[in-house]
């Protein structure tokens, strides 16, 4: 591992200033992804700015919803009564990720920023990875791509965002609060993540030097009808092949009044198509409606040699998740 400097600011302003004054700095949350990548030589920060002591570790009611500080540990969020009661899909999504030990370390900010698990990205001894080495090519497109994207990929990069929590945040229309040298700003989850396009080296729309300070969940009283389905190669401690975060509200006669859903494991970002969700409005929960929304979400799907099964799996997973969410609505 390359030698690096270490700083531990106690205020957010100090953190931002430290970042600005050192080139090649990185914020350090729980370290469960960053330290791994440093050991592999993928990340080589000059300075680690340990932000875990920043006063950003509370969960509180805020503007009718709740605000989760960026330093709150994943397990704390998953077990928090406000989250469990009002946004069960978020709690389930977090608990579906990693392992208890990792969730105890991982922070909300770090979780949002975790990098792809594409094998060719993760090991710098592979020569071709546009995400790691812009312009070098992509070893995954013609290589082993079981875990890779079927939607929204480019001929530059077909990596997926590996996160579970982000999928739930996307479905819930969460807002990411950030603080940068130019002051605070916020973005909806849908604008925070991005597709690879011609610049797959850029994971998100967070600008260099910006610090995630909090995640705001909007006031949606019907989010109790939520379900997170994660389909994976073993029952725990595996990244999603496909995941679905579904929130469904029913009207008094049992038809779907509101529905929001996002997919994980299919694209460079949690995949959401608000137009597709409209297909569900007014429908009785059931296979017909579920199939229609799946087709709308899958429009333009392009699988690769080892992930062809994902297309059909998406259809089935959406049906299962919507069925479960509707039962709870």
């Amino acid at each position: 591992m390359k030698a690096f400097a270490y700083a531990r600011p106690s205020t957010t302003d100090e953190a931002i200033a430290t970042f600005s004054s050192s080139s090649g700095a990185k914020f350090l949350g729980g370290g469960t992804n960053l330290i791994d990548l440093m050991k592999m030589g993928v990340e080589q920060p000059s300075t680690l700015i340990d932000i875990t002591r920043l006063p950003l570790a509370t969960i509180e009611e805020h503007a009718g919803g709740i605000r989760i500080g960026a330093m709150v540990r994943n397990s704390t969020v998953a077990e928090h009564p406000l989250v469990r009661d009002r946004y069960p899909v978020l709690s389930q999504a977090i608990l579906a990720g990693a392992s208890p030990q990792l969730r105890n370390m991982a922070t909300i900010g770090g979780n949002l920023m975790q990098r792809t698990r594409c094998s060719y990205f993760y090991d710098p001894t592979y020569a071709h990875c546009n995400k790691r080495l812009p312009g070098s090519g992509c070893d995954a497109i013609d290589g082993y791509n079981r875990m890779h994207a079927i939607l929204g990929a480019s001929d530059q990069c077909i990596a997926t965002n590996p996160g579970d929590m982000a999928v739930a945040l996307m479905a819930l229309d969460a807002r990411i609060q950030v603080l940068g040298p130019q002051g605070p700003r916020s973005r909806l989850a849908g604008d925070f993540f991005r597709l690879p396009g011609d610049t797959p080296n850029i994971d998100t729309n967070l600008r260099p030097g910006e610090l995630i300070t909090a995640v705001d969940l909007p006031p949606i009283d019907w989010a109790t009808g939520g379900h997170y389905l994660k389909v994976r190669d073993r029952n725990s401690y595996a990244f999603a092949l496909i995941s679905v975060a579904a929130v469904v509200g029913l009207d008094s006669n049992g038809s779907i009044r509101r529905a929001q859903l996002a997919l994980g494991g299919v694209a460079h970002m949690p995949w959401r198509v608000p137009d597709a969700e409209r297909v569900l409005i007014g429908q009785t929960p059931g296979d017909g409606a579920f199939r229609d929304v799946a087709e709308a979400l899958l429009k333009g799907a392009k699988p690769y040699a080892h992930n062809r099964f994902k297309v059909e799996l998406v259809r089935r997973s959406i049906a299962r998740a919507l069925e479960a969410a509707s039962t709870r609505a």
Binding site: D123, R234, N235, Y237, A238
Partner: peptide, 16 residues
């Protein structure tokens, strides 16, 4: 071997 680590080379965990 592309899955040369214990995150990607799967063996069962307790839940399995």
């Amino acid at each position: 071997i592309v899955n040369n680590n214990l995150a990607e080379y799967h063996v069962p965990v307790n839940a399995d």
